[in-house]
Design a protein around this nucleic acid. Structure first.
Length: 466
RNA sequence: GGCGGCAUAGCCAAGCGGCUAAGGCAGUGGAUUGCAAAUCCUCCAUCCCCCGUUCGAAUCGGGGUGCCGCCUCCA
């Protein structure tokens, strides 16, 4: 069964067929690095990370590129506020991005291009657009002329007329059309600048993605992802620039995620109703947020709440517990009779995850399959003293495979294991002599350090709190 | 005004024409445990409203109601 994705360009589900067999070029719009990113921004980072991992686990060789926008009005404004140079500001928040994204289990991209490192590419791209008659200059600015691109509006499904009548932007009389957008911006005093054929200035926002994706992925790419709010104007403009420059189709599959909402409103910087991933990390294991973001389909809005995170935590604990119990059983129990029921359940969950993910990356549906496997494993462990080691190994392999895609299972061990083991030994001695006061004291002590004790017929085991 | 999305149990959330409407959280009653924790078993919805299409609809069409988004920087 083949992978099918919803393509925003055609507004239909389509079979996914990359332009080069076995290879996928994948570009995702990254952050503007003027601040810590918030949990709404985290949604595409996590989602597209999972899509990429799924493609890899399906056997594709994926080249994954995510940019950093490190020069624009917001960067300049913020740098002034913080009394930093724009470059210093960028360094600081790129470092912060890596910390937060790593914490969320987001695999590093193959390439992280930065606008300020690709100025030559960008200037060259603008030159081509001018040469081909798609752009014009005014007093050191360069604008893209939207009326020169017949298909302008094909992604957002808006005609030029519709867009103009609905436009809320200030009309710049110098522009030929209010929708013409800036490719190169003349610098004002005190702003960072680069030399160009049109004078000192800096790149506009949209052009960087076209220039960088072309440089690293070629004229045509398979998947371009981002949040829905980028459809217009950002992605529409990228299409116009790239297709006018190359004469080829820019992107085969456009994928956009719906927003993260809070109190039924879109979470956004401008509304001020945001919470950064940094904030979340102070209170929760970030993998809980990762699970939460994967618990709804990517094209549906997801409403953020503390209750939602708590539910996600419990659900994730169930998976983690199962994984831990499974491993404990493999270490401590003997081989018993074959359990066809478990074998079948794992097989069916495995097939189910693939079928569900193949349907437009239905992560929420796949979770159902994963929990079916979890239950089957738990049932087996609770019903048998001697376990079906072979079936359990298959089950473990299944969970590992799932985790390669979803990446939310906790597998860490503690570095003070010896001390923990000593305390557990002492506690078990106390239990043998019915000294339950001491035994409970030790349990509480460990709990205060985030270690949870569980007594089983095979002995006492421990785990870290999520 | 243009374009688009959503409405499934107390909460979250799959399902996209046909078995008893996945799964998770919470809750119920049991089992297990020194007590716990984890786990198992049990119970817990007919899908916003109306009208259609169909042998058959949560799923399709039409009309409502409610909520949300993009059209400006925004993931």
């Amino acid at each position: 069964m083949a992978l099918v994705v919803y393509n925003d360009l055609t507004r239909k589900k389509e079979e996914f067929i990359p332009s080069k067999q076995g290879k996928v070029s994948f570009y995702v719009c990254g952050p503007t690095v003027y601040d810590y990113f918030h949990i709404g921004n985290a949604r595409p980072f996590v989602l597209f990370d999972v899509f990429r991992r799924y493609l890899e686990s399906s056997g594709y060789d994926v080249l994954y590129v995510q940019n950093f926008t490190d020069i624009d009005d917001k960067m300049i404004k913020r740098a002034n506020e913080m009394q930093l140079t724009v470059a210093e500001l960028a360094e600081q928040f790129i470092a912060a991005y890596y910390e937060d994204a790593d914490a969320l289990g987001v695999k590093r991209a193959n390439i992280y291009p930065r606008a300020t490192h690709e100025i030559d590419e960008i200037i060259n791209f603008v030159k081509i657009l001018i040469e081909k008659g798609h752009a014009y200059t005014i007093e050191g600015d360069v604008y893209f002329e939207v009326s020169t691109f017949q298909e302008y509006g094909k992604l957002s499904k808006q005609s030029l007329d519709d867009l103009q009548s609905g436009a809320r932007i200030d009309i710049d009389k110098r522009k030929k059309n209010p929708l013409d957008f800036v490719l190169w911006k003349a610098s004002k005093p005190g702003e960072p600048l680069w030399e160009s054929p049109w004078g000192k200035g800096r790149p506009g926002w949209h052009i960087e993605c076209s220039a960088m994706s072309t440089k690293y992925l070629g004229d045509s790419i398979d998947i371009h992802g981002g949040g829905s709010d980028l459809i217009f104007p950002h992605h529409e403009n990228e299409i116009a620039q790239s297709e006018c420059a190359s004469g080829k189709q820019f992107v085969k599959y456009w994928l956009h995620n719906a927003y993260l909402m809070i109190d039924k409103e879109k979470m956004s910087k401008s509304l001020g109703n945001f919470m950064t991933v940094r904030d979340i990390r102070k209170k929760y294991n970030p993998l809980i947020l990762r699970y939460f973001l994967l618990s709804a389909h990517y094209r549906s809005p997801i409403n953020f709440s503390a209750e939602g995170l708590d539910q996600a935590q419990k659900a994730l604990e169930r998976i983690d517990n199962c994984y831990g119990d499974l491993n404990f059983a493999l270490e401590t129990r003997k081989t018993g009779a074959k359990d066809q029921i478990l074998t079948d359940a794992i097989k069916s969950a495995d097939v189910g995850v693939t079928a569900t993910m193949n349907d437009d990356f239905n992560t929420a549906g796949a979770l159902g399959n994963i929990f079916d496997a979890v239950r089957a494993i738990n049932v087996h462990l609770s019903k048998h003293t001697d376990v079906d080691v072979s079936a359990l190994q298959d089950a473990k392999e299944f969970l590992n495979k799932v985790n390669d895609i979803f990446g939310f299972i906790q597998r860490n061990k503690d570095n003070n294991e010896n001390e923990i083991d000593e305390l557990i030994k002492e506690r078990n001695l106390a239990r043998k002599t019915s000294n339950f006061a001491r035994s409970d004291e030790i349990r509480d002590l460990l709990l205060s350090r985030g270690i949870i004790i569980e007594d089983t017929p095979q002995g006492t085991r421990w785990k870290k709190q999520i």
